[in-house]
């Protein structure tokens, strides 16, 4: 194993059923249903996936959902805005915890 991440491995995602067929199959059935057109459009779902891919920093997911977002008709601006949403939530999630820090500090300090 020369590298932890290999772009060619993305296409092998489906092979996870080789080690555990039942759970793998259930996952992919669920996955397919999640991304089907529903109350949200396929493009909206793809952009959410793209944002989450950046938050969880998954190179495979970023590769897959950059392609998928473009194929669903998203523009580069939409995609970057989606990533900013992810970044804002990620940053906000850190900062909102500072209220705990503030509470604790105020509790400790005279």
């Amino acid at each position: 194993m020369s590298s932890y991440y290999n772009p060619a491995d993305l296409a092998k995602f489906g092979n996870i059923v080789e080690f555990q067929e039942e759970l793998g199959k259930k996952f992919f059935d669920y996955y397919g249903a999640v991304f089907a057109e529903g109350a949200l459009t396929q493009r909206e779902k793809s952009l959410i996936a793209l944002a989450v891919a950046h938050v969880v920093q998954c190179p495979y997911c970023i590769d897959a959902y950059t392609t998928d977002s473009l194929e669903k008709g998203a523009t580069e601006e939409m995609m970057m805005e989606a990533v900013h949403v992810g970044a804002a939530i990620r940053g906000g999630a850190s900062l909102v915890h500072s209220t705990m820090m503030m509470n604790k500090a105020k509790e400790l300090m005279m």
Binding site: E37, Q42, R43, T67, L70, E71, G73
Partner: peptide
């Protein structure tokens, strides 16, 4: 037709856009 190495997306959704 896509501007790049991409497949076209769902026709009905793109048409609405």
């Amino acid at each position: 037709n896509p501007v790049g190495a991409l497949l076209p997306g769902p026709q009905a959704a793109l048409e609405a856009d």
